[in-house]
């Protein structure tokens, strides 16, 4: 007993829930009066039952999951949009240049680095230098020199390592927790770097000592997907860089200034 040739696909469509209401009604009515089509419909459901009982699907072996994670990590790092390849050569020069890592190892997950730079004869650090230092800090294996969320740990750590005491206000209540700090170099000048976070973003704050030769009022900037905000407070210059949006980064600056004074 076999199904009506002109109804066969509709019977399968019914079993697969692919028919609209009117077609489903029509074929159900037909099945009720046609033994051949009814048998076909039952065969479909019986096969489905057998396949479900047998649990015929395969599960991916655990080793495959590990392979994929390794591959994704490697691939993700290689093509992450926040590490454009055209910056790689500039970065390679930094890596080959021993000056920066002798004094400072950049923070691993640092998304929010606040840099303080020490202007001497040169003007305020350029955007490229700030962004490069930020990217360097994001590289795997670049630990924070001091990893702590407590400003009472981070701030004293800089004593004796740099000739000023960078403020490290506690902004965790505002959603900007402190991760730690490190020494860094921006355009050959030693700076204090504070690392804050905002969700998955890292903010590097670079702090340097302002002096007569430093360029006053360097402006905020946005470049290659990174935002930089700058300010001066007392005798220190600040530059915060992150891939965080400019609005929240500006909010970060406002809070940083408020909490420093408070």
């Amino acid at each position: 007993m076999s199904a009506c040739p002109d109804k066969l696909l509709l019977v399968h469509g019914l079993a697969d829930g692919e028919l609209d209401a009117s077609n489903a009604l029509a074929i159900e009515t037909h099945i009720a009066g046609c033994a051949g089509c009814r048998a076909e419909h039952e065969r479909i459901l019986a096969l489905r039952h057998t396949l479900a009982q047998a649990e015929a699907s395969y599960e991916a072996p655990p080793a495959l999951a590990r392979r994929l994670e390794t591959m994704l990590a490697r691939e993700g790092a290689a093509q992450a949009p926040d590490v454009p390849s055209r910056r790689a050569s500039a970065f390679a020069r930094h890596v080959l240049d021993a000056r920066w890592w002798t004094g400072a190892v950049a923070g691993l997950a640092a998304g929010l680095a606040v840099m303080v730079w020490l202007p001497k004869e040169a003007p305020a650090a350029g955007e490229d230098a700030i962004i490069n230092s930020h990217l360097r800090a994001l590289l795997p294996g670049h630990e924070l020199d001091v990893a702590a969320s407590d400003r009472h740990t981070v701030r004293p750590w800089f004593a004796g390592r740099i000739d000023f005491a960078p403020p490290a206000p506690d902004l965790s209540a505002d959603g900007f927790p402190l991760s730690g700090g490190r020494l860094d170099f921006i355009e050959d000048r030693k700076v204090a770097a504070l690392v804050y976070r905002r969700r998955l973003h890292v903010i590097n704050v670079f702090v340097s000592k302002a002096d007569a030769r430093s360029r006053p009022g360097a402006e905020d900037a946005s470049k290659d997907g990174y935002n930089i905000v700058r300010w001066r407070s007392g005798d220190l210059d600040f530059a915060a860089v992150s891939d965080l949006n400019s609005k929240e980064l500006a909010q970060f600056r406002t809070l940083f200034i408020q909490r420093t004074k408070g």
Binding site: P61, A65, L72, G76, Q79
Partner: peptide
């Protein structure tokens, strides 16, 4: 790891068994 990769993992890795 970039956010793009993270999003990819979140969306696509749950279908690893189906893919396999």
């Amino acid at each position: 790891m970039s956010e793009r990769t993270r999003r990819f993992q979140a969306v696509m890795l749950p279908h690893m068994n189906a893919a396999y």
